[in-house]
Design a protein around this nucleic acid. Structure first.
Length: 143
DNA sequence: GCCAACGTTGGC
DNA sequence: GCCAACGTTGGC
């Protein structure tokens, strides 16, 4: 069981759209970066991820679950890029902002802090539990 | 709107 | 295979 962080812009793919896709989820398309693609290839069904908004929002707003492992990205014609399907698990009672993450010592080494441009990132179990707590998620929704 | 960080491209 | 030029992302 691994943890991830998936970045989106609200204008492109919002949390509302993610929720509306229901339990079947939706393809996480549009990733055009090898490191991000490789992270998606490493995802297993049932892995959890934070849904993070970049741009104006810059915060974790929800939790998603991998429901289909890496397969070709239907929006890509080159055959190079892949995506996974993710489904919304729950929104967070209290969004966790990038500023909060940056000011939390234990999260200093997060990829989000050190390589903010990577759009699909691994999250350690410790980071997952800290942010879950900050977000006001119940124990059940954590690991 | 600016700029730093990073990735990709293309010339050599 | 190196590196300069360029484009994109994302935080401020």
């Amino acid at each position: 069981m691994a943890y991830w962080l998936l970045k989106s812009e609200a204008e492109t793919w919002s949390w509302d759209q993610q929720k509306a896709s229901g339990n079947k989820g939706a393809e996480w398309t549009g990733v055009r970066n090898y490191q991000a693609r490789n992270n998606m290839r490493a995802m297993k069904n049932g892995d959890l991820g934070f849904f993070y908004l970049s741009g104006d929002d810059k915060c974790v707003v929800g939790v998603v679950k991998v429901v289909a492992e890496a397969h070709p990205d239907s929006t890509d014609g080159t055959g190079v890029w892949e995506c996974v399907d993710v489904a919304a698990v729950s929104g967070v009672p209290k969004p966790v902002t990038l500023a909060e993450i940056k000011s939390t010592k234990a999260l200093k080494s997060m990829v989000l802090v050190n390589n903010s441009r990577l759009s699909v990132q691994p999250v350690s179990a410790e980071e997952w539990s800290i942010i879950s707590r900050m977000a006001g998620l119940k124990e059940k929704s954590r690991s």
